[in-house]
């Protein structure tokens, strides 16, 4: 089951720099949310606040479960540990061979991060997040450094895993296609100090295709909203 999140009047500043300005938001169990906004709009800060890596300046965040997996923008794997050891590091009792198989990493348990491609390192990053059986999966621009085929393949894996486990997903990205591929609801942000400009429900089915007319139509609509939000 997924985690539930309630955000009330959340503000976050770093010194005199205000980043988040009075955010209020409800995220339902098993919902897939994507935050879309310009650089510096506090997307990553919001994720770090949820994960407890930062403290809010004011307001509150209520999270129904602390069991979370975090897919960082950069893989953050321990360089001198094998793939298997990197996974054991976060959960000694987890089903490592199962998760490696699901993410098509079966033959790489004994490899070191430096021996893997960027895409595979990111898969290990995802495997580590899924190994803790998360009720909330956080994706922080997790695919920004990957090319489209690799990105799509990993996103498909996430969707498959989500269909099985129904955890809640909160992701941030700049990429409209990525947002539409993953989300049940997209939250569009203004530049900093950011406010939530609009929420867009994604009415596409479970199997999403980048070139379908519905996808392209929604992408165009999303582009208009994002452009107007940036101004």
């Amino acid at each position: 089951m997924g985690a539930r999140l309630e955000v009330r009047s959340l503000c976050k500043s770093f010194g005199s720099l205000s980043v988040l300005n009075n955010w209020s938001l409800n995220i339902r169990e098993s919902e897939r949310i994507v935050l879309l906004g310009p650089s510096g709009s506090g997307k990553t800060t919001f994720l770090r606040l949820i994960a407890g890596l930062e403290k809010p300046s004011s307001g509150e965040i209520k999270l129904s479960s602390q069991q979370m997996g975090f897919v960082f923008q950069e893989p953050r794997l321990i360089p001198w540990r094998t793939v298997e050891d990197n996974l054991l590091f976060v959960n000694e009792k987890g089903d490592i061979s199962g998760i490696l198989e699901k993410l098509r990493l079966s033959g790489f348990a004994g490899f070191f991060p430096a021996q893997l491609s960027g895409g595979m390192q990111q898969r290990v990053n995802l495997a580590r997040a899924l190994l803790v059986e998360p009720e909330l999966l956080i994706l922080d621009e997790a695919f920004s450094s990957l090319d489209l085929p690799v990105k799509t393949s990993i996103m498909k894996d996430i969707n498959l895993h989500w269909q099985e486990k129904h955890f809640t997903i909160i992701a941030v990205t700049h990429d409209l296609k990525e947002a539409l591929f993953l989300a049940d609801r997209i939250i569009i942000l203004s530049p900093a100090p950011s406010v939530i400009v609009r929420e867009l429900p994604v009415t596409l089915g479970e199997i999403r295709n980048f070139s379908s007319p519905e996808f392209l139509h929604l992408e165009g609509q999303l582009l208009d909203i994002v452009c107007s939000a940036s101004h």
């Binding site: 994960a51 407890g52 890596l53 979370m68 975090f70 960082f72 953050r76 321990i78 590091f89 976060v90 959960n91 580590r128 803790v132």
Partner: peptide
């Protein structure tokens, strides 16, 4: 890496 360890 330390932050990742703290998070998990």
């Amino acid at each position: 890496l330390l932050e990742m360890a703290r998070l998990y």
